[in-house]
Computed example of a mutant assay.
Amino acid sequence: MPGRIWTLVGVTACGVVVSLLATAVPSQAAPSPSAPATARIRATAAVDAMMGFYDAETGRWQPESPWWQSGNALQALLDYMAKTGSRRYMPQVKNTIAIQRAPLEWWPEGGGEFRADSTDDTGWWALAMTRVYDLTRDKRYLDIAELDEAYMRDYWDDTCGGGIWWDIPAKSYKNAISIELYIKLAASLHNRIPGDKVYLAHALEAWRWFKGSGMINGDHLVNDGLNTQGGGCANNGGTTWTYNQGVILGGLTELYKATGDKSLLADARDIADAVIASPSLTQHGILTEPCEPTGTCNADQAAFKGIFARDLGELDSVLTGHPYRNYLRTQASYAYANARNSAHQYGLSWSGPFDQASIGSQSSAVSLLTAVL
């Protein structure tokens, strides 16, 4: 018989339970929290499998995959290293940075240091640089992140009242992911640079714009972007991808650390709770990408759920009582039981069955399993 997961549906930022939703889950993977040692073993096995996709010559994971995914895989690896203290793969980290920071053959105008033809691509790599700095205290990595913040900031203008263009040089689309990454990056820099005021001001300005932009819909979910081409800068009703829900949680967490403003946590919890309550994003208790039911997920979308898990874990770490810990543990238990093959590779759907692994799906699993450590 299937088990049941009781999911809090209407938890307010003040912790008031409005209602409970019971959803059936497969019986073969009863969600019990793993002991710390078991959780680390599972995360380590997933990391080792992820490194099977690593190509030392290019410094990328699965080089044929989109470039930003190597930046995201680097972040996943660094998060694991930060949580566990392991430095086993630090040579690969340094190799990747040394190769990939060079001017890009396909976008030489950026001048290197991860400055690319889309601001979100730059943002992924820049955030990874802040994590390398955390591990090494080598200011060279923070310097790169500062260059990347300035590069992204160069594409802020008054169209739609503010915000960062996603695509360079076309400047045809202002979307959620670029501004979310920028908020998190600017706030992260502030939290690592004593006496900073500039990056904090940038992060707060970006958050105020994003909150008022209309991209956060009436259900507290983030649509993909704005109709910037003759659409009056209205919410375009685009897909509520899980990573768009996630990155802003991490950004608001960094801003909370910078300011102590608890209203930022309330805003973050509205979004997190909406994901858990959404029948399209949490199906039968398991986080689900909107493209999964139709079998139309592409290489990019395979990575999205892990990004949400990473950022939800960051939010949960600063909240009293850690209200999202059980949700994350449930995801990790089901992914391990249902989405994994004997080589500890993970497929797209965390509720299973395993289909095939890519750097997107594998880095996603690494971020999930790291979030519960």
Rank of each mutant, 00 (worst) to 15 (best):
V47W: 01
D48H: 07
D48M: 03
G52D: 01
F53C: 09
Y54W: 05
E57G: 13
T58G: 14
T58M: 15
E64F: 09
S65Q: 08
P66Y: 06
P66D: 01
W67T: 14
W68G: 05
W68F: 12
W68N: 05
Q69K: 10
S70V: 05
G71Y: 00
L74P: 06
A76R: 07
L78K: 00
L78A: 00
D79W: 11
D79L: 15
Y80W: 05
M81P: 00
M81A: 07
A82G: 09
G85M: 04
G85R: 02
S86D: 00
R88L: 02
M90Q: 11
P91H: 07
V93A: 01
K94Q: 10
N95M: 09
N95Q: 15
T96A: 07
A98F: 04
A102N: 15
A102W: 13
L104H: 13
E105I: 13
P108W: 02
E109Q: 14
G110T: 11
E113D: 15
F114Y: 04
A116G: 12
A116P: 08
T122S: 07
G123S: 04
L127Q: 11
M129R: 00
T130E: 04
R131G: 05
V132H: 05
Y133N: 11
Y133Q: 07
Y133V: 03
D134G: 05
L135Y: 08
T136R: 00
L147K: 13
L147R: 15
L147C: 12
